[in-house]
Every structure is written in C-alpha cells, then in structure tokens.
Design a protein around this nucleic acid. Structure first.
Length: 366
DNA sequence: AATACGTGGTT
DNA sequence: TAACCAAGTAT
C-alpha cells in the first residue's frame, strides 16, 4: 500500500488546510512583505511615533500618495515633542494637498495629548490609544499591534476584503463590520501579532485585490470560501453610496500689481477646515450665477474668466466660476483676509481645489 | 445609522 | 470615462 499524506487522501481533492491559519500567512509575509519607509525591518524595533504618523496619513489614502508626505513630515517634525510644539499653521501647511484635513488638526492635538497625558510616550493599550484625537478602532488596533506587538486587530479595507472573501460573508458593509472584526480577531496569533496585522494588509493590497484577485498566489486560497464559489471578486458585499449633487459657487482672485494674491483662512471645522482659500461665495446646488459680484471681497474691476474650475470631493462635485481683478499695490486687505506674495503661495496651506483656482486665474492673467 | 470629510490613481 | 477605491474618524 502506498503511503499517503493526511491532507491529500484522494485524487482531485484540494491540497492544504481547510481552515485559515496564521502560520501560512506569516510564511507568505516573510517572503513577500512590502518594504515601506515607515515599516521596521525584521529585527528592528518599531518607533511608535512613526507607526502612528504613517497610520494617520494612510487613512483613506494610497501608499504612493503618502510616501513623499511622510518623508517631508518626519524631517520637519522628527519627534512627537517637536510636532506638539509646532504651530498648527505649520502642520496644516505640511499636510496641504493630502486631503481630509481634520486628520492634520487631530494629529496635532494628538501629539499634544501624548505629551501632556503620557509624558511623550505613546500608550500601548488600545483603550488608551482610542481615547486620543484622530485614533479610532482601526488605528488603535494598528498601533497596538504594529508598534507594540500586542494581540490586536487592525480592520481596514484590505482586511474587510480578505476576511469577507475567506468566509464568504454575505452581509453587506458597513453592517458586517462587527462580524468581520470578530472573524479577524479569531485568526490573530499569540506570536507576531504585529506582523500578522501587516501581513493581512499586504495580502489585501497585493494579492486579494478588489479586482482580479491573484488567488493562485494566495496562502489562504484553499480555505477561501469565496474562491471556492468562483466569485471572489464580488466580495465584500456593499451598500450602494448616494451620489452628491453638483454644487456651484464663485471664487475671486484679487491680484495686486506686485503679484500678491488675496487669501483668507477657512473656519476651523467642516469642509477644508483651517485651510487657506481665495475669497468666494458659499458653495450650493442653488447658487445663483446672477449674484455676480455680490460676494466679491473688495470693489475692483472684476473680470469673469472664461471656463470654470471643476473639482470632485468625496460627497459632491463642485463647479467654481472664477473672477479676476488687478488692483494697485497699495490696496488694503479687507478684514479677515491677507495679501500673500506669489513666492509665498507654495508655503500656504492651500487645498488642491484652491491651487486649481489660483492656477486658473494666474494663467489667464499672464 | 448615515453622512461629512480630499485627493489621485486605476479600470 | 464614470465609477470605484485607498492602512478611517467624528458626529
């Protein structure tokens, strides 16, 4: 009689375990882990400050977009103490262009809280982390696991996809979040929980991708219920998202003869909170173009520029009509606004939509 | 529970 | 190209 292995009892039977196992994923991770600037090399001790900074930047943001910001930010604010001591304006400026600006405000507040409440050392307990500004369930788990090697889950979009496929979770997101979290937690090993957390994310980012998952390369292909059904790509199930209505408005670029541009700072909360902008109207689906110059910041010979600036936010598209006026060098800035020289524009905390507006106006002015 | 909150890359 | 998606959090 021919000796047989325990797992392959008859021809055509699938090989490998029928239950997902952490060791298989960790073995895959040891071979295929991504080398990322904020990630400690094997044997190195992670720096909680860097782990935390990267996790905040990576919220809803791609690795490629984060890399240059992370490097610049770390060079400018090397420690949590340095960040805590910096003016908020400097933090907003360093974040400008990355999006979701409440992250930058909370980042700054969090650094100050870590210094004030924890002596400048990030806490290792998830509950303590969770109490800090800008740190939610995901980030608390990620920092606990990655920076402190605690048994914790970090359920991001990658993990939701991996787990929902592995177990063929039929419940749609976001309702399925608690179930997915529980299923993920059940897989976390006592040893190397930090690597396991990162392995789940790497797997989701490089193998268990939203479209065309590379199941043949997956260490969990054999226990994967979605793969067995041949419809891995249809997971996770999701509720359709409502589409935002187009909003319109006007933006006014006042250009002094010395090249300075009139800017103001938006209110601290809400859309683009705390960021710089060109004066303008409110943005509304009901904006009436006949308002014309009613929202202009100062009296001048305003010229409506041909075309418009379009921008798409997460929850609505925006169309801005741009007005341009050239004014004398001795023109006073109205209350709440300030003149900014052309050379200093790059140093301003201008969100991308406002950079588009300024570019549109300056190209028309030349 | 549902919505607000940016931006850029991919398909 | 329109739609989807990316290491989510706050309210």
């Amino acid at each position: 009689m021919v000796a047989s292995t325990a797992v392959q009892s008859k021809p055509g039977a699938s090989a490998g375990p029928v239950v997902p196992d952490a060791r298989a994923l960790l073995a895959w991770y040891d071979r295929h882990r991504r080398d990322l600037p904020w990630r400690a090399r094997p044997g190195e001790t992670p720096d909680p400050y860097r782990v935390w900074l990267s996790e905040i930047m990576l919220q809803q943001t791609t690795v490629a977009a984060v890399k240059p910001y992370y490097e610049r930010f770390l060079a400018r604010f090397p420690t949590v103490e340095a960040l805590a001591a910096a003016p908020q304006e400097a933090v907003m400026q360093a974040w400008a262009g990355l999006g979701y600006y409440s992250r930058a405000r909370n980042l700054h507040a969090c650094a100050q809280a870590v210094v004030a409440r924890f002596g400048g050392r990030f806490p290792a307990e998830e509950a303590d982390l969770r109490s800090l500004p800008g740190i939610g369930a995901y980030t608390a788990g990620a920092v606990a696991a990655i920076a402190f090697d605690r048994v914790a889950v970090a359920v991001d979009g990658n993990v939701e996809r991996v787990i929902s496929r592995l177990h063929a979770v039929e419940e749609a997101l976001p309702k399925a979040k608690p179930a997915i979290r529980a299923l993920a937690l059940a897989l976390v090993p006592r040893k190397r929980p930090g690597d396991f957390a990162q392995a789940m994310m790497d797997l989701g980012a490089t193998v268990c991708t939203p479209r065309k998952p590379a199941c043949v390369l997956c260490p969990w292909s054999s226990p994967c219920r979605a793969r067995a059904s041949g419809e891995a790509e249809t997971y996770p199930r999701k509720r359709a998202r409502a589409e935002g209505r187009l909003r319109r408005g006007a933006a006014f670029v006042a250009l002094r003869t010395d090249g300075a541009v009139l800017l103001r700072t938006r209110p601290g909360k809400g859309l683009l909170g705390g960021m710089a902008e060109v004066p303008g109207s409110d943005w509304s689906p009901d904006y009436d173009p006949r308002r014309g110059l009613a929202d202009a910041p100062l009296p001048a010979s305003w010229r409506r520029l041909p075309g418009s600036v379009r921008h798409v936010f997460t929850h609505f598209p925006l169309e801005l009509t741009v007005f341009l006026a050239k004014v004398p060098a001795d023109t006073r800035a109205p209350a709440g606004a300030r003149w900014v020289g052309r050379a200093e524009l790059d140093g301003e905390a201008l969100p991308n939509v406002m950079r588009k507006v300024v570019t549109h106006a300056l190209s028309a002015a030349s």
